[in-house]
Nucleic acid binder design. Structure first.
Lengths: 214, 214
DNA sequence: TTTACAAATTATCTTTTGTTAACGTTTTCC
DNA sequence: GGAAAACGTTAACAAAAGATAATTTGTAAA
């Protein structure tokens, strides 16, 4: 049984500034520009804020959702239900990360994925057309978008390489190294899916690794 | 033994127009803009053209190459040599496709991948900084770049999904369906790598599928 | 604390894959 | 044309993964 979400709400600039870690974001996305809080305000103005309960949906399959989401706090997984009825988790999104339904944005389709919170999550979002309006007028913020796009491209590129070049075991070690906290926060079965193996298989990989260590 | 390449050369607009299939490109990349041959000329002007022999390198590992390449005719594979000394092919690039060294562009690093022609290949290329100069001045062409980026993002997204959601057998069927000609043109061992399996395993997959059909 | 449910591990068995090597076929290059 | 190299297939064996079910562990609700 999935609980309903709380409603979106607006926030004062001061409120938002208090939990918006600009330095951290600039570091994460390699933003070298002299980007200030004042630059971002124009985006904050159109954003809606929302708290999501644990296990609630940000986007449901069948929905046409063209919002761009940004997570302040919490954790979201995207998953698909296959023909057998199994949920397969494809991606995890964490604090300071953006996510959106690629199907809704790239193909103007309904989403075939669910976006479900794995923790109580606090996020903001805005429709992509509204964002683009602003970006077309504000060159500085638009350049920032470039950094974010680049980072996401980079992550996708590395993930493809990991599937071709690494074994499941190596992918798991890589995941743990890069996301030591997620390894604790995320149920194992979801991590298994993300790595392209079954939960049972990941359990065995962990056992093998534990044996090796001794 | 790898042969050396022929030298890059310039071409007249008329020459280029004759083998540059703008309609095909617009269709492939979903470019809805009223893009004309005249718009592209500005890019053609700075591009260098080059014929590559079969098995020659477009980019070699250890090189710092920030060119963006576009293939008119031919086929290129990107591969990496792992610790065991095996070549692992990660991607295939064909006519009307762009490619570049992600490492050189995203990380300002040397390439750890080789880009090798699997056929006699005819391509053009230009350094990314020169391209960006032009794009910053010509809005129409810059919007076209957006379409191309989107298409590449889309392809990467689908490839990640295929690794998580599909079995190797399903990935192979998907590859054949989407690239019936490549299945003929590309040696099987490279296709196997791209799908994330060994050549021996792909051979067995093909056999299993042949058995099923009867 | 007890109960109930979900998650992780373990076990068993089957299927698939990796690895190495052999074999026949095709291609490449003198 | 003929030797050498490259390719795809097949075989044999070991290792790993998928599927299913049972068991244990952990967590949350009553």
């Amino acid at each position: 049984m999935k609980k309903s979400n709380l409603s979106p709400f607006s926030l004062s600039f001061k409120d938002v500034e208090s939990f918006f870690n600009l330095d951290k974001i600039k570091q994460l996305y390699g933003i070298h520009k002299n980007l200030t809080w004042e630059d971002i305000k124009i985006l904050v103005k159109i954003a809606k804020f929302r708290r999501y309960r644990n296990k609630s949906y940000v986007i449901e399959a069948g929905e046409k959702n063209t919002n761009v989401f940004f997570i302040f706090k919490g954790l979201v997984r995207s998953y698909k239900v296959n023909e057998k009825g199994d949920e397969i988790t494809v991606s995890l999104y964490r604090e300071n990360q953006f996510f959106l339904s690629a199907e809704c944005h790239l193909y103007q389709n309904k989403s075939s994925f669910y976006f479900e919170c794995l923790e109580p999550t606090f996020a903001c979002f805005a429709d992509v057309t509204k964002i683009q309006e602003i970006l077309s007028r504000d060159k500085k913020v638009d350049e920032t978008r470039e950094f974010v796009s680049l980072k996401i491209f980079q992550q996708n590129y590395e993930r493809i390489n990991s599937f071709v070049l690494l074994t499941p075991e190596e992918r798991y070690l890589d995941f743990v190294e890069k996301n030591p906290d997620l390894n604790q926060r995320v149920p194992n079965k979801y991590i298994a899916n993300v790595l392209g193996v079954t939960p049972v298989s990941l359990s065995r990989i962990r056992k093998r690794l534990a044996m090796k260590k001794e």
